[in-house]
């Protein structure tokens, strides 16, 4: 339990994390019982802050709500509960194995889906490629899993056009991985390119292909302050030829 990740318990209890960051923190939380206990207490503390500013709502609100519930079907006990779905209350104790597994499964599914995108393109070599895809998925997933378990993992993320990119970095592992999901698919002659940005300018961190998701092992983050993603001609560019569709600060 590193103090670095652990400091996020406060921001999490106050709903002060970005959605992607919250997701990653919840993954960490599933593995950290000390964090879970602290978060439960801090969430309860936040509720006290909330209750302290009580104001009686207008009477017509009461009438509307009481009418509305007569028209609203209740969930049955044990009904389908999706992580992050409407009604998720952020309570931690019930994030037991089922939700942990579903979160982990979703993470794997994103990565495997990315890997299998390759399969579709090379349909002629199905078996060979499927094997390749599986081992690629394993290779892709391994560094992410390793990072998620790191006590000092830091995350940052950005979104664009419905897609998102999340960067995980750990100083103790000296490792940084960037994962994208749901990005708009680009034509075959284009590629997503990831850039490190600082006052000196842009330097390429690698290519993510033209598909909707991918994983990039960042080997040379250098002294980048910001991460930018641009769409470039296939093969990548020396310097960006378009403005970034997404940028965000490098994790602290």
């Amino acid at each position: 339990m590193s103090p670095d990740v652990h400091t996020l318990t406060g921001a999490y209890a106050l709903d002060a994390l970005d959605p992607d960051e919250r997701e990653v923190f919840e993954l960490h939380l599933a593995e950290c019982s000390a964090c879970t206990h602290e978060v439960a207490e801090l969430v309860a503390t936040a509720s006290r802050l909330g209750a302290a500013v009580a104001v009686t709502p207008p009477e017509n609100l009461r009438k509307r709500v009481l009418v509305e519930i007569t028209r609203t079907r209740q969930e049955t006990p044990g009904g389908l509960r999706l992580v992050g779905a409407d009604g998720e209350l952020g309570a931690i104790r019930r994030r037991k194995w089922t939700t942990r597994i579903s979160v982990a499964a979703a993470a794997v599914a994103i990565l495997v889906a990315g890997a299998f995108g390759v399969v579709a393109i090379n349909a002629n070599h199905q078996l060979q490629t499927a094997q390749g895809a599986l081992s690629q998925a394993q290779q892709q997933y391994a560094p992410v899993a390793q990072l998620l378990a790191a006590p000092d993992v830091h995350t940052a993320s950005g979104t664009a056009d419905g897609g998102s990119a999340t960067m995980l970095t750990s100083r103790s592992l000296d490792k940084t991985v960037l994962v994208t999901a749901n990005m708009p698919v680009q034509p075959a002659n284009r590629t997503y390119q990831v850039w490190g940005i600082n006052s000196a300018g842009f330097h390429s961190l690698g290519l993510l292909g033209n598909g909707s998701g991918g994983t990039l092992n960042v080997t040379d983050l250098g002294n980048a302050r910001q991460i930018g993603i641009t769409v470039e001609p296939a093969g990548g560019s020396q310097q960006p030829t378009s403005s970034p569709i997404m940028h965000f600060a490098v994790p602290a």
Binding site: I69, Q74, R81, G87, L89
Partner: peptide, 11 residues
Amino acid sequence: VLVELWRTASR
């Protein structure tokens, strides 16, 4: 929020 509490009370 109130209607959601009604809907998801079984949780």
